[in-house]
Simulated assay, not measured.
Amino acid sequence: MRKILLQISIFSSILILIFSLNRIFMHFTFISDNLVQNKNEFFLMYILGAYHDIRFLSAAFLPLLLCGFLSLIFMKFNGGGGYNTIS
């Protein structure tokens, strides 16, 4: 279970980093300079974008996390399923 959580965390971090870099490149390419003058809107654009990226990733990885928890429960009921320890 720890491996599944670690993999989800690492993969989510990598995707958030890629999405943030994409947002920065799009900002420098497509958005005009008058947005940069208003620092509050500039900061809000990046915060709201990261928030929506995290919501997307949590919805995408929720079935995998539920499968991990269900397999852990069924392994306990079935005597470990051939494993001596559950880590």
Rank of each mutant, 00 (worst) to 15 (best):
M1K: 12
M1H: 09
M1P: 13
M1W: 04
R2D: 13
R2P: 00
R2V: 05
K3Y: 11
I4H: 01
I4Q: 03
I4Y: 01
L5G: 14
L6N: 12
L6W: 08
L6M: 14
Q7M: 13
Q7T: 08
I8H: 02
I8R: 01
S9W: 02
S9Y: 10
S9L: 05
S9G: 09
I10G: 03
F11H: 09
F11M: 08
S12C: 08
I14M: 10
L15T: 06
L15S: 08
I16W: 01
I16L: 13
I16E: 01
L17M: 06
L17F: 10
F19E: 03
S20K: 00
S20Y: 06
S20P: 01
L21I: 10
L21S: 14
N22Q: 05
N22Y: 08
N22R: 08
N22I: 11
R23C: 03
I24E: 01
F25G: 03
F25C: 12
H27I: 04
H27A: 12
F28K: 02
T29I: 10
T29L: 12
T29N: 15
F30N: 06
F30L: 09
F30C: 00
F30Q: 06
I31V: 15
I31T: 15
D33E: 07
N34H: 11
N34G: 01
L35A: 07
L35M: 08
L35H: 02
V36G: 05
V36I: 13
Q37A: 08
Q37H: 05
Q37N: 08
N38K: 09
K39N: 14
N40G: 02
E41Y: 13
F43S: 05
L44M: 10
L44F: 14
M45K: 14
M45H: 15
Y46A: 10
Y46F: 15
I47V: 14
A50C: 04
A50N: 06
Y51H: 12
Y51W: 09
H52S: 08
H52N: 09
H52T: 11
D53E: 13
I54E: 00
L57P: 07
L57C: 02
L57M: 04
L57V: 00
L57D: 00
L57G: 04
S58R: 06
S58P: 00
A59P: 03
A59N: 13
A60T: 04
L62F: 07
P63Q: 02
P63K: 00
L64S: 02
L64Q: 04
L66E: 15
L66K: 11
L66N: 07
L66I: 12
G68L: 03
G68I: 04
G68K: 08
F69A: 15
L70K: 09
L70F: 05
L72T: 08
I73A: 14
I73N: 11
F74I: 03
F74W: 14
K76P: 02
K76H: 11
K76L: 07
F77D: 02
F77W: 13
F77R: 14
F77G: 05
F77H: 05
N78W: 04
N78I: 11
N78L: 12
G79C: 04
G80Y: 00
G80D: 01
G82I: 03
G82V: 04
G82K: 07
Y83C: 07
N84K: 14
T85E: 13
I86M: 05
I86P: 02
